[in-house]
Amino acid sequence: MNDLNSLMPGGGISRRSLHFFILADCSGSMKVDGRIQSLNYAIASIAPTLINWEREQEQAQIFVRAIAFADQAWWHIESPQPIDLLNWVPLTHVEKGLTSMGAAIRMVADAISPEKFEPRSLRPVILLITDGKPTDVEEFEIGLRELFSLPAGKAAIRLAVAIGQGANVSYLSRFINDPDIPVLVAENVDQIAVKLTAATLAISKMSSIGSDRKQVSEQIILPAVNSFIQADDDTIV
């Protein structure tokens, strides 16, 4: 193309954005068996998977934000961080902290409201990780209503990882709100990274144009759900 032909009307083009929200439980129980440390390790270790996907797909630019929740919810990463520049600052548990999951869901709903969310983005991804159940049940109900009332909230890919037996899967299933996508249960701390990796692979597949969400669930999430003990990369792939 010569110089004239290379002129493009408007202010330029770019790939679409994929906004990835991590909602991480920092309640008091997350100190049990080193869960919070395992969670930090798992989150840090999924970054390369996402970076590889971003490079291979050449479709979207991934931006990460994170909300932590215990007695309240707060932004751990408020400004969208490009995945390849992500420097994960470890979360710490809040001693005797509650599980304000509802407040966290309300925060993410606010972040993807029409006033704040760019319409051209790919469907946002919301990953909820917890070892309990919401202690702010009323806020949880309000949060779900707010989330599902939003176009981007309805469109979002919502996944959940339950850590240990104390996690209440029924609340997480209501958050996912898709019968094809089960909750990923990490029976012990060793499985947190495995389940998060499965979730990440599922996210990347589901975010691709022409993907079949149900098929991705069957190929990636269900095997990960069914691999209770010896889950490894072979199971995921």
Partner: peptide, 21 residues
Amino acid sequence: FGNSQIEPNWYKGVLTDIASF
């Protein structure tokens, strides 16, 4: 087309440029 545009309100810029061209 619209999903490629960096500017959220790309309409004015794109049409003005095409008019100019």
